[in-house]
């Protein structure tokens, strides 16, 4: 059998214009060092910040960071891969309990406990990912909701979680610099993941499963992977949460928590990392900022969700290309390829 040269190359001379970037910047050890330097800078800045700002504001910042890690995971599942999850808080719960048990009962080091919390959550993510082999859309959503309720009830009834009374005696091991560094690392990891063959495959699952399959994408694999990675992030976030509040109980991770996390992702702009971060900041800070309204604040919160969805259904950053916006703002000239009409297209 003769092999045929069926490449379409040669037909075009036009390869992309190479990016204008100094060659040394493209070396990966250099980039790795730069990234480490960034983390150190984040640590230094937040350490300094910790000294200046009042404890209460510091606490809000800290929870914002934890929430960012968790909602980035949800954004991967729902925003990027298109699998609607109404039970993300369950992964957070699993990570929180697992990490707490690791440090309190098993006396493991905190870092290891965090990692294990994430991994256990990821394992459950795989378990939950399997129904996605057969379910889609709202059926999947209700299955994830059901899964989360089951996790809550199980946590309420198990001895090892100390049931409804809650798990206490966890040491406070988390401070703002740690959370800030992890959140920045999480953002970076997500950005890298999305801008890769792996991430593109996930987005193709969201866009059109049949076309994705025809393009060679194993949709089942990427769905389960998205659940696993998303759950890992939630699990790590849960571990951080447990070692911040020092006390966790099953009702901390109920349906409303899942809904809150989903709101953060949708509010900012589904599938967008910047949107997820923004939505998380807004919705973490909003209830605190609205605290002066005391009892009315949840009323305002609910109404705000409705109004925002009516006026910006694609989310706050829906349809905004951030890189382009920044470039335009900094007058760095147009992007290499001309973009027509990007605005106004919410998802």
């Amino acid at each position: 059998m003769s092999t045929v040269d069926n490449s379409v190359s040669g037909a075009v001379p036009g390869a992309p214009a190479p990016r204008r970037q100094p060659a040394w910047l493209k070396l990966w050890p250099v980039q790795a060092l730069l990234f480490l330097a960034l983390l150190v800078a984040v640590w230094a800045v937040t350490e300094a910040l910790n000294l200046v700002i009042p404890a209460y504001q510091g606490q809000i910042l800290l929870f914002t960071g934890i929430n960012v890690i968790i909602t980035l995971g949800l954004n991967l599942i729902t925003g990027v891969t298109g699998q609607l999850s109404l039970g993300h808080a369950a992964f957070m719960a699993i990570g929180a309990y697992a990490a707490a048990i690791c440090t309190v009962s098993l006396h493991l080091p905190f870092a290891l406990a965090l990692l294990l919390g994430g991994l256990v959550a990821a394992l459950f993510g795989v378990v939950l990912g399997f129904p996605t082999l057969r379910l889609s859309g709202d059926y999947l959503a209700i299955a994830t909701l059901g899964f989360a309720e089951i996790v809550r009830v199980v946590n309420t009834n198990l001895k090892i979680t100390n049931g409804a009374i809650g798990y206490y005696g966890i040491q406070k091991r988390v401070d703002l610099p740690l959370v800030a560094m992890l959140a920045v690392a999480a953002v970076a990891a997500m950005a890298w993941l999305e801008n890769s063959r792996n991430g593109r495959a996930m987005r193709s699952v969201r866009e059109d499963e049949i076309a994705a399959t025809a393009s060679g994408v194993n949709t089942t694999f990427y769905k389960i992977q998205a659940f696993a990675v998303g759950a890992f992030f939630a699990g790590v976030g849960g571990g951080l949460y447990a070692h911040t509040t020092t006390f966790i109980q099953p009702t901390d991770f109920g349906f409303l928590k899942s809904v809150e996390q989903l709101s953060m992702v949708v509010l900012g702009g589904m599938g967008s990392i910047a949107g997820t971060v923004l939505g998380t900041i807004v919705l973490t800070a909003a209830p605190e900022l609205l605290r002066f309204m005391s009892n009315y604040r949840m009323l305002v919160y609910g109404a705000t969700l409705i109004v925002l969805m009516i006026f910006r259904p694609g989310g706050l950053l829906g349809g905004v290309d951030l890189r382009d916006a920044v470039r335009r703002a900094l007058m760095l000239g147009r992007s290499r390829t001309v973009r027509t009409s990007v605005g106004g297209d919410g998802q």
Binding site: A201, R203, A211, G216
Partner: peptide, 26 residues
């Protein structure tokens, strides 16, 4: 088509089977 993705991304997804990298690579 993958309608809310760029043309480039559409075609890159078409090239999925030509690549091998996974999560760790990304």
């Amino acid at each position: 088509l993958f309608s809310s993705l760029s043309l480039m991304e559409n075609v890159l997804i078409g090239a999925h089977s030509r690549g091998r990298s996974g999560l760790a690579g990304a």
